[in-house]
Amino acid sequence: MNPLPYAREQCIELVRQMLRIRRFEETCAQLYGEGKIRGFLHLYIGEEAVAVGAVPALHADDAVVATYREHGHALLRGIPARTIMAEMFGKSTGCCRGRGGSMHLFDAATRFYGGNAIVGGGLPLAVGLALADRMQGRQRVTACFFGEGAVAEGAFHESMNLAALWQLPVLFCCENNLYAMGTALDRSESQTDLCLKAESYKIPARRVDGMDVAAVREATLAAAAEVRSGQRPVFLEFRTYRYRAHSMFDPDLYRRKEEIDAWKQRGPLHALTNQLRAQVVFDETDFQQLEDQVSTELREAIAFAEASAPEPVSDLHRDVRAAARPKT
């Protein structure tokens, strides 16, 4: 077994964050079954090491652009679990006042720019955020998360080119979980080497084991530093896997159970927990303590969402345009 990547406390914190996302989403699935959460719900279960490794490796004033599979990123960015939960309950206390739901979490305070349900839709946005930083002389990184399915969209290629051409501080984080809905990577890409695509735009690219939270963290720290100081884009491909179906509507008939099981063997949460157990003082009680912390937060989030008021229907039209036009 490999040595622990970090000191005991830091490893425990990584486990705690992965557990937090895992339990949060398991609960979401359950609440979906109860009809409390509706719409499309895309779970990140299995992929937690990517967000847990990458998001906290950014600075507080960096920006994050994500997809519809973004609960984990949102939690890690610091959006309170209670306002995320309330959003999914469609309540007025939700981070988007019930307008967005699971696929559209936004938070200005943490520079979390969504929550985008158009595949590839976030990439040009990230390019623009970085352009604004560059033009205004700010040393910030815009981290853009997207699935490998997005790589087929024109928006991906146009964004790669712009970011490289204008030398913009974007950290492209491709979460390659091998399937875009039911379409496997090799059934949708003539060139399945995603790093090569980025490199063809002269963007430095690295492939990272997305099931290894420390590898993700180290790669992101290094890449973000490079983007920040070098003022140019970097592309990271995280190899990962989603355990659950694409969404709550997906019968998941396009992959073999053995394949799913094989990836589960490498599950990031178990891997690091077992490593901790084997190598330092960390036992069932310690783990249970994490479970308790996580479940307290979760219970509180659900109670908050339940107790919150729905948006008044009279406010249906708010926030389409600014309430008042600027004085000219």
Binding site: R38, G39, E87, G90, K91, C96, G98, R99, G100, G101, H104, P310, E311, V313, L316, H317, V320
Partner: peptide, 16 residues
């Protein structure tokens, strides 16, 4: 439909 991007919350969507 109400002239808003369709909102998520059930009651708001219905009202739209």
């Amino acid at each position: 439909s109400a002239e808003v991007p369709i909102p998520y919350a059930k009651h708001l969507e219905a009202a739209a």
